[in-house]
């Protein structure tokens, strides 16, 4: 039984929308009920980017994730400031600690601090910070299997960019490892 409602947010260019879509597609691959709903604005570049993803066993009524998120992936400070309130008590909060220096202001949520941008840079590609976060998210929530995420990513990358699979998998594993460490 899965019942995961997630808000993913950051600034444009952090791969937030793609991260949400991979999660959604992974859920679909597993035969779960899924939806992906973006916010959209007039700006084409560099604005805020956020989306709500639902992965659950039961059919989805409202596709809007607002005030009832079971988990959140926050990639920058304005996102954390804006969406922290939308997490249910006991919800899981993943914070990109490379760019967010503050801690969660709520004590009724489970917060994890993932230096995803630093890890991505260490691996040699700053763009894969989203995969670090996704690895952490899957480890933490178990909403989908890692294999389904890889399958979704493979279909997105296509043959031309198939060589990027390896570095993405490494990023994913590093994110998962962060959660394991912090949980213990």
């Amino acid at each position: 039984m899965v019942n995961e409602r997630t808000i993913l947010a950051g600034f444009g260019g952090q791969g937030v929308m793609l991260m949400g879509q991979l999660l959604t597609q992974a859920g679909m691959i597993e035969g779960k009920e899924v939806s992906w709903l973006p916010s959209y604005g007039p700006e084409m570049r560099g604005g805020t980017a956020n989306c709500g993803v639902i992965v659950q066993t039961e059919p989805i009524s409202s596709p809007v994730v607002e005030g009832n998120a079971t988990s959140e992936i926050m990639m920058n400070t304005p996102s954390l400031d804006k969406f922290e309130k939308d997490l249910v008590p006991g919800g899981k909060l993943l914070i990109n600690s490379s760019l967010i220096s503050k801690k969660a202001s709520r004590d009724d949520v489970e917060a994890y601090y993932i230096p995803s941008s630093d890890i991505a840079n260490e691996l040699g590609d700053t763009r894969i910070a989203n995969m670090v976060m996704l690895g952490a998210f899957v480890e933490l929530t178990g909403a989908v299997e890692p294999e389904s995420i890889f399958q979704a990513l493979e279909s997105r990358l296509g043959l031309a960019r198939a060589h990027l699979m390896d570095i993405n998998k490494q990023a994913f594993a590093r994110g998962a490892a962060c959660v394991k460490e912090q949980r213990n």
Binding site: M28, V34, W36, L37, P38, Y40, P63, V64
Partner: peptide, 10 residues
């Protein structure tokens, strides 16, 4: 509405 136009579902 904008939601149905913009959202992704299977």
């Amino acid at each position: 509405d904008g939601v149905i136009g913009q959202m992704m579902e299977p």
